[in-house]
């Protein structure tokens, strides 16, 4: 049956409406988890608050299990689900830039929009920074075009690279998440902060 749009169960125009609803849901969850506070996000780095890790990993695991079970029941064809192509150097360099921005600014792109929506001025400035970065990237694209497309790996899935089944890999991810949650809570006790 699924995915709905590629299988023409619903029209492609529905994409926008669905994205709109999901976007609102995503923003709601971010705000509800307290991610509109840059201190909370920076806490992930310093170890006094690991709720970011927990929320995102829980979300990822839920989606992962959902997709695998849907595939098992024949409700979705995972081969038709779009997977972002991996350009290794882009991923590494982009990851580093994003990580630095994350710690320095205290937001990731999504949470900055969320925080700006509730009127946080630092978030608005952060968004300004995002647009500045987008502008520089776009205007200077010819300069780093080669680097951007370097080491095109296609769209591999981790379990395929490791040569194990998707289900088993999912199980390993869940175990890893449980361990990370446990370590995170240990860190919260180890590096507590009274108020943030």
């Amino acid at each position: 049956m699924g995915p709905l749009v590629p299988n023409e169960v619903i029209g492609a125009n529905w994409n926008f409406l669905i994205a709109f609803v999901i976007g609102i849901g995503f923003g709601f969850v971010l705000e509800q988890a307290g991610f509109s506070s840059s201190r909370k996000l920076a806490g992930m780095f310093y170890g006094y608050d690991t709720v970011v890790l927990k929320v995102f990993f829980t979300g990822a695991i839920t989606a992962m299990l959902g997709l695998l079970f849907f595939s098992l029941f024949g409700w979705i064809n995972l081969n038709l689900v779009y997977v972002n192509p991996t350009y290794l150097w882009s991923a590494i360099i982009g990851g580093v830039i994003m990580g630095v921005g994350f710690i320095a600014g205290g937001f990731c792109p999504g949470t900055s929009i969320c925080a700006a929506a509730i009127g946080k001025i630092d978030a608005m400035i952060f968004i300004g920074g995002i647009f500045l970065g987008v502008f520089i990237f776009g205007e200077g694209f010819p300069l780093w075009e080669k680097l951007y497309y370097a080491m095109d790996l296609g769209a591999p899935k981790l379990n395929q690279v490791l040569g194990i089944s998707g289900g088993f890999f999912a199980f390993l991810v869940i175990i890893a998440a449980a361990i990370m949650f446990w370590v995170g809570e240990w860190a919260e006790k180890k590096f507590p902060r009274e108020e943030y």
Partner: peptide, 24 residues
Amino acid sequence: TVGIMLLLGLVIAMVPENTTKPYK
């Protein structure tokens, strides 16, 4: 919650992957 997730993960790890191409 963690227990349920682990259990579901165990189930999905045990079942064979659905590689059939569904007839449309």
